[in-house]
Structure formats: C-alpha cells, structure tokens
Amino acid sequence: MDIFLQLLLSGLLLGGVYGLLSLGLTLVFGVTRIVNFAHGEFVMLGMYLTYFLWQLGFDPYLAAPVVFFACFAVGVVTQHLLLRKTLTMPHLVQVFVTLGISVVMQAGAQLLFTSNFYFVRPSYGNAMVEIGNIRLPLTTIIAAVLALIGTALVHLFLKKTHTGAAIRATAQDPYAANVVGIEIKTVYAVTFGVGIGCAGLAGALLAPIYPVYPTVGLAYSLISFVVVVLGGLGSLPGALIGGLVVGLLETFSAYYISPEAKEATYFTIFIIVLLLRPAGLLGLRGSETMGANH
C-alpha cells in the first residue's frame, strides 16, 4: 500500500511538473494557433538564466520571477521580430520558423556555454517531506504547487483583466476582435510573451531538480507535445490534467511494467489520442482541422 501511495504521489508531482512545462505551449497555441517547436529551448533558456543568477548568489526561487520577466521580454521581442509576420502565412512557415529558432538557440547555447552540464544546488536541494513512510522531495513539491498556482494565475489573468478579455476575444475570433478595436498585434505579442515567460518560469523551477545543457530542450518539447495534445491543445486546465495523466502513466508503468516501457506507453497513447480525439480531453472539438489562418 505504501508503495502504491508513494507512486501515486510521485506520479502526481511529476505530472504537476509536466503541466508546468506545458502551460506556455498551450497558451500560445490557444490564442495564436502557433505550435511553438522551440518551446523546450525557451525552458532551457530559463534554466540557464536561473543557473547564472544562482551563481551570482540568488536563490533559484527568488530568481524565478526575474527569469519570468526576462523570458517575457524575450518572448515579446521574438514575436515582434519573427512571428508577427507569420500570422497570415501557412502553418508550414510558422512551424518552420519556430524550428529555426530552436536550432539557433541550441547552437547558441553550445557556443556560449559549451556542452557542459550545469547543476543548481541550493542548500535545501535534498530536503524531504515525510508523511509516514512516504517521502517526497521539497523541490518537486514546490514545482508542482507552483504549476497549480501558475495555471490559476494565468486563468485569472485571462478572466479578470482587460488584457485577458482582449486575449480571449482574439482567441475566439481575431477578425471580430479587430473590428471592436482590439489591437490584435499587441494581444499576440503579450500572449507570446506570457507563454515564453511561463516556459522560462518552468525552467527556473526545474533547475534545482534537473541539470541544464544545450540539448535539454528537445526532450521537454516532446513531453509538452504529448501533454498538451492529451489535455487538449489550447486548454489551460487541459495542460494540467494532461500533465497529471502522463506523470501517473510514467510512474506506474515504470514500476509495474518496466522502466523502459514508459516511453512507449505515452507515445502510443499520444498517437491514439491524436487519431481518435485529436482535440484532446478538454480541447475544442474540431480545432485540429482548423484552417490555415485562424
């Protein structure tokens, strides 16, 4: 029983981390209909920033807000310089531009930081929370809890603020939004900024748990894809639920089947979901066949 509970909680925590990883990806898609293939690289950027701030003496969790805003700025600039032009272009261009960004960021990281592994090691890095025989690492708990809070905050931001309302309006119908005087360009820039900020934040919270190196992003991109497709591309709660499902699947299949089986498990589920219900668990039905420019 202990084992089951331990696996359940570990899986939920891992799922929370995955949800956090995927938040930015799903937000950007929901509004701009761009699937950001450089998502994992922005997480990597967040991790590097956190590492260097930690080297300067910042606690990683104090660094996290700084990283969020830095990545927000990077996101706005990237959107303005590169992605703004692609909004009216075919999907192919959007996908390829983000792929190009990921290639450039990976190569850049390798030139600047070499292929060394960097580790962020705060003093409480090994701290545990013990409930009976169940032991959970503090850093992972923080990441998972902040994933919940982050999702809630972004949700509130969309529901309660003026900008949020504009974003939602644009997501639903960019043309109508334009007609009623919403500056769509600004909306897209802000959305992309928030999305990349979330990716960076995820990086900051992952940094005390995982090492950072130039090619770390690819794995994070792949997991985020699985998570958001499962939860429904564009749905915020979907990302969280998708993350939890993947986390639990991974943990349980690794223990009860074999640690090697977990990858196969979630990619199979990914393909099945894409084929049977491409909109995901919580996604809008039909979004997968949406035309080019919506």
């Binding site: 699937v35 999907h91 959007q94 996908v95 894809f225 990619f267 199979t268 894409l274 997968e288 066949t289």
Partner: peptide
C-alpha cells in the same frame, strides 16, 4: 487524413519516436 498542419507534424514526430 483529418489532421492539419501542426497536428499532422506532431503525429509524424511521435510516429518516429515509436
């Protein structure tokens, strides 16, 4: 057949992984 753009792209990526 029903999948467009990025959805198709992600399916092909996942297929290769499998």
């Amino acid at each position: 057949l029903r999948l467009r753009g990025p959805f198709f792209a992600m399916t092909t990526v996942a297929f290769t992984e499998l």
